[in-house]
Design a protein around this nucleic acid. Sequence first.
DNA 1: CCTCCACCGGAAAGCCGGGTCA
DNA 2: TGACCCGGCTTTCCGGTGGAGG
Length: 409
Amino acid sequence: MNIFENILSSATIFKNRDVLRHSYTPEKLPHREEQINQLALLLSPMLRGGTPSNIFIYGKTGTGKTATVLFVGRQLEEASKKARLNVAVHYINCEIVDTAYRVLASLARKFGSNVPMTGWPTDQVYDEVKKVLERRGARVLVILDEIDKLVKKAEEALYGLTRINSELEKSSICLIGISNNLKFKEYLDARVLSSLSEEEIVFPPYNAEQLEDILQQRAKLAFEDGVLEEGVIQLCAAIAAQEHGDARKALDLLRVSAEIAERERDSMVRVEHVKKAVRKIETDYMIETVRTLPVHSKILLYSMSLISENTPKFTTGEVYCVYKKLCNKVGINPLTQRRISDLISELDMLGVLNSVVISKGRYGRTREMKLEADRKTLRKALEEDYRLQNLRKFEGELKKFANLNLFQF
DNA sequence: CCTCCACCGGAAAGCCGGGTCA
DNA sequence: TGACCCGGCTTTCCGGTGGAGG
């Protein structure tokens, strides 16, 4: 028997897995009617040959900003096609397209202009965009998703785009900026800000009930009938609502739960799978944060993992002592205790450990901490770093040292 | 009630890599 | 091209402190 046939014949939980991915834009967006109407109203001048105000949209991750804008954009295109108008919608994700050149080039290319990937001066691309738009007489809705990413590297591109209309005659551009970072407005140049946020739409987080509706709707498309145990959706919704009302998280949770069920060859997705999924997502997140930490933080965590084999709680001085020893072993200059103190605070913020400043009277004032992450998982994630791999060789010696260090008082 | 530990955490300066501008 | 600047990381310096023990 073909190995794939074997796999395919066994698991039939998913009907369509892609429905649960972030990239999927559903036909209906529950609990976003208000925002959809507002947006449609603001954009309607495009269908009457006018130019709408620029729009600025903000809301936390997973509040349906991108999905809503894409949805309305699609409807706009359809409506304009029916009315035989020359309206186009151009979506740009600024995290990927993150320089002035690339933004302008992608816009020019959308209208069939041959702008090379690199090479032209940015001004020339800007002119090219104007030329192409004028030739077509097009009204364009440009969606700049994650616009905060663009500000740092290409504020002048934004400035240019906000002013481009005054240099166009037959065509026009309407901008929609999407951001989940409210603070970014403070960094924005005042001229750009006032032009960009002529209109603003806020996307509030979803509550548990709303998330439940969203999940219900997607589940119908994603799963075969009757594979979800009673309460699975409610649990996913409740957990996601507790955090930030993040629909993305809720969908992830549901998808991972189902994947776990599938892997266990269970015919149903059960509440226990959701609980496992929560843990899996948590550890995955932890591993990912640890992986991307700078070396010194990694060595620091390694010291902590050694110490916590003997005692769960320990102080800055103890960790620093072991940390210095480890640095010697791997041939890296240790940082000062002052700096380590800051690194510990950072790790605390990330949730890898938990620390409190306590006073031990005569024996000083210090921070007492304990690891939050599972020690074994943490260790595995740390040892992925080639610079720390030698440390396993000294494990016995180091453990003894860590132990000794604790009893020096 | 005072002392004094062992560190906290603010301020400021130094270092470094990358980017900018003439 | 080199002078210059910027921001992030790190060190240096140092005043501050809660509470056990005297």
